[in-house]
Each structure stands twice: as C-alpha cells, then as structure tokens.
Design a protein around this nucleic acid. Structure first.
Lengths: 271, 271
DNA sequence: ATATAGTCTCCCGTAATGGGAGAGTCAAGA
DNA sequence: TCTTGACTCTCCCATTACGGGAGACTATAT
C-alpha cells in the first residue's frame, strides 16, 4: 500500500491531480482509511494511471478517458472517437500553422515600418440577407451617390424597414476609372415590391470575407484597398468575387468626411 | 451611436464578449446611459476591436492585448513580445504534431490487434537520487537476487533510510543471456558509508525516460521489453543509455509472481 | 514527548466567455 | 395610449484540470 505521495513520485503525477482523479471517479485508491481519510494506492494501479496519462496526451478530456476506461466499449466506438480526435488535432495543427504565418507577417511589417501597423485585416463570415438594390454602369465612382438617391426615396415611400448599413458591390473584376459596374444595396427586413430598376433579392452568404476598416475620406480609399490586397496576397488567399464597401459611418451621420468609417470586404478562399 | 447588438453584428463579435471587453477595460463603449446602463458604441471603435481580434488570433491573451493597445510601448518591446509568442506557437505546433503521430499510432495498433492496446508507454523525467548499489557481472539474470541479498543486509545493518523501490540497471548495450553486467541500486535518504563492493553515489537525473509498466512474472518480461523497444522505434526516439527495471511490487510485498509490478525504463532522445 | 513531514478537506482562482434568470427599456403597430 | 416583441441590463453559475494555500489532523522517527 502506497501513500499518495509515494504513488505520486512513482507515477510522476501530482498529488493534486491524483486527488482530482479520485474525486471524479477516474482512479480511486484501492483503499481509503475510514477514519483519517488517507488514500492508499497499489502499484497495480500504475498501468491504469499510465493509460490515463497517455490518453490525456492524445488530446482526450478526462471525461472521454473515463468513458474509454470504464465501460468496455465496442472497439468500433473507440476507433470512431480516435478519428474525431485526429480531426481535432489536425484542425489545431492548421490553426497553429496559420497563427505562425500571421505572427511572422506582423514581425515583418513591424520591422519594415518601425511602428505598429496601421491597419488590421480580419476574416469574417456574413450570412445571407435580403436587400433592395440598384445596379448600373456609372461614369465614375463619384456618381454612386445618384444610385443611393434613387434607392432611398423608394424605400422611404414603401416604408421599408432597414436592416443594416448600405453596401456597394463592385462587379468589375478589375479596377476601372470610368464606366464602373456597381450595385448599391440596403438590407431590409420583411418584404418589399421590386421594380425594373430596384431589385429585391437575397444576397447570398459569404464564408470567407477579408475585411478592413477604412477611416477617413473616400479619397484615401485606394490606400486601404492596396493594404487589403497585399494582405490577401501575403496570407495565402485568393480573391473569389466582387468586393464590397459597407458604409458604416457616412453622410447620414456626420458631415465631416474625415470621420467616415467604411468597411472594405473582399471574398477570398485559401489558395 | 450603435446599440450593443448592432455593434456585435457589424463586428461579428458576440455581445457577451463585448460586455466582457468593457468589464476588463479593453474596449469601453463611447457612452453608457447613466440611467438604463445601455451601452452605446460608435463605428469609430471598429478598428480597435478589429485589432483586438487580430492580436487575440495571434495567440495573445486579452491582458497582453490590452498592454499593447493602451500604453504606447516602445516598438522593441512589442517585437520582443511577438517573438515570445512565435516561440509559443512553434511549441504548440510541435506538440500537436507529436500528438497527431501518437493518435495515428494508436489507430494503427488498435486496427491491427482489434482490441484496446495492452500496454502504454509514457515519457518521464527522473531526478538525481542518491543510491547504494552493487555492480557485478553475473552468470544469468536469475542471479540478480544474490546482489540484492548482498545489498539489503548491509543497508539494514547501517540503518539506512530507504528512499524508494529497488532498481536494476543493465549496463550491457545489447541483450545477453549470460555474463550480464548488472547493477542493483536502492535509493537512500541521508548518508551511508560505502565499501569495496557497495558504492554510494548520486545516480544522475535522466530527462527522457520511456517507461512501461510490466505486470506479472519476470518470465514474461521480454514481451514487455519488445513492446517498449518497438514503441521507441515507432515514435521516432532512439535509446541513449542502459535500461533499468524498477521493482514496484515484488517478493517483499507478495508471494505471487503473477501480481508483480515492474517498471521498465529506457533512456531515450528524439531522433 | 516532540519535531517534522505528510495528508486531509475546503475554498478560491484560472481564461474567456456561454447560458439563463429576472427585471427593465425601446420602438412600432393597433 | 396600450401592448407586444425584441433588446438590454446585471447577477450568478458553469466550463477544464488542476495549483495554491489555510487550518486541522496523522504518521514516523528521534
């Protein structure tokens, strides 16, 4: 009979952990003194404890370890659990790899620029949402306001319930100075009648959207676009669809273009 | 001004998380209604929130994120922190890789044998310990008892305090049927006079010891040895020193050889 | 008898939220 | 104006696998 300290030394498992395993019923001492509460273990219990340690290192929770050890499950079930664990480990492995790339990217950026980077790119997912939209080829970017001026009065007239900030979608696959194919859309709740010019439909969900918040006037948007594109490049993504601008803070909330807030969104996929 | 739900939708950060960030002072709403407690955010806060998300994804704790964002630390400090994080990520990456190998090993074993594996190998570290030992070349394994019979009476006579179970160290680098160079040792606490035959010295620590618990009579030890060696092979280790047997439960505690418990220990290093 | 080392239970803390209760608030429709 | 439903608030508990520490008791050696 071994006292907990001796058993701990033999097994290299801490006393605290042993008491915890006792508490959750994973490994009970062969004997507990009814008067003093002292736990007494036997060397015979070392194999079980070793197995606990090994399974834990495999990434199983103690609850899963207990399942594997207590019932004698069918082997198929065990294999299944291990396959699940394998997938989890692979997932975490990928996560860590991505993390490593990104830490290195930061180190590179900060080393080059000598200051904290000025922008951050986040990968998001957006759900499908019903929108009312107008799409047209306009002479220049600045004419985008006209499309909104077409859309908003219509929404007001039909008392549509707005469901979020307005969005612009640039359908050209490359950059254009003029004759820009652009769609402006506003999320709406409920239903709304469409017209020739104004479509109402469900904007599909996008799984991976590289997003960057642009602060300031629209004249400096191109810098932010460049930053976004180079991030996409550097992080091993490729662009998979038309990019969007979400007007989070614009003329409707402030008159100072310097305080505008716009989110640039670029659908991407891992290369 | 955005209510927390709107801000949550725009940022894709949960309301719970936003409230938590508020609580720990990481991102406070621009305004909190003094009567209702409602939090009001501004779109201007999205860049900061994005940065929080990005740094969190890099593996920083929220406390570290707060440090980076609140003080304007010297850039060198930031770089240093990132290097630390880089090392951590690499460590976790390695851990996961090892884990993956081991999960696959288990799947292979369980697939081949059709049942739960019968043994487990654990990597341990042992500290240095003072031992009293006798080393000799004995005709056969069975004669090992004679060495103990030489050692134990001496320890008893000098009232030595025993510090753990007895150990045998096999100094031959390869397996031998006869003329085995073996050392038997017993950890002791305090000091003890040595003799010609009985040495007292500090058995050095070993960083990586592949350990397997053998249950049963010593006649079947060789099977366990084979299991241990093939595990070492399969997991990319190599043997780096003489192996040991630790007699956790033996004649001194039971008369039934079938209930003996012995730990086989093989010093190893990663290949 | 005493000193020392070991053990017991109980309670708190971790990191970053998620879940839920119960109460109050906001905006829109009838 | 009232109601309804969607939001929001605070507070409390739970998660994982223990580690730290307090205060009390126990075992063993001198």
């Amino acid at each position: 009979m071994l006292r907990i300290g001796d058993f701990s030394r033999l097994s290299r498992v801490s006393v605290k952990a042993l008491r915890y395993y006792d508490e959750i019923g994973l490994l009970k001492p062969v004997e507990v003194d009814r008067f003093t509460g002292y736990r007494y273990y036997s060397a015979d219990q070392l194999p079980r404890l070793n197995r606990i340690v090994v399974l834990k290192n495999l990434g199983l929770s103690l609850e899963e370890v207990a399942q594997l050890l207590n019932n004698d499950l069918p082997v198929s079930h065990i294999i299944q659990l291990l396959h699940v664990k394998q997938a989890e480990v692979q997932q975490r492995l990928q996560d860590e790899e991505r993390r490593l790339v990104q830490v290195e990217e930061w180190l590179k950026r900060i080393g080059k620029e000598g200051i904290m980077p000025a922008y951050d790119v986040v990968i998001k997912k957006v759900n499908a949402q019903t929108v009312a939209s107008v799409r047209d080829v306009i002479p220049a970017y600045n004419d985008i306001g006209k499309l909104f001026n077409e859309l908003y009065p219509y929404l007001g007239k039909h008392k549509a319930q707005l469901g979020g900030p307005p969005i612009a979608i640039y359908h050209d696959m490359e950059y254009r100075e003029r004759d820009v194919d652009v769609e402006v859309a506003v999320p709406i709740a409920g239903s709304l009648a469409a017209t020739d010019r104004i479509k109402v439909y469900e904007l599909p969900a996008v799984e991976h959207l590289a997003c960057l918040i642009h602060q300031g006037a629209y004249e400096t948007l191109n810098e932010s676009y460049q930053a976004l594109m180079s991030w996409v490049e550097a992080n091993g993504y490729q662009m998979t669809g038309p990019d969007r601008e979400v007007y989070l803070k614009s003329y409707d909330q402030t008159n100072d273009p310097a305080s505008f807030v716009t989110e640039l969104q670029q659908p991407v996929a891992k290369k």
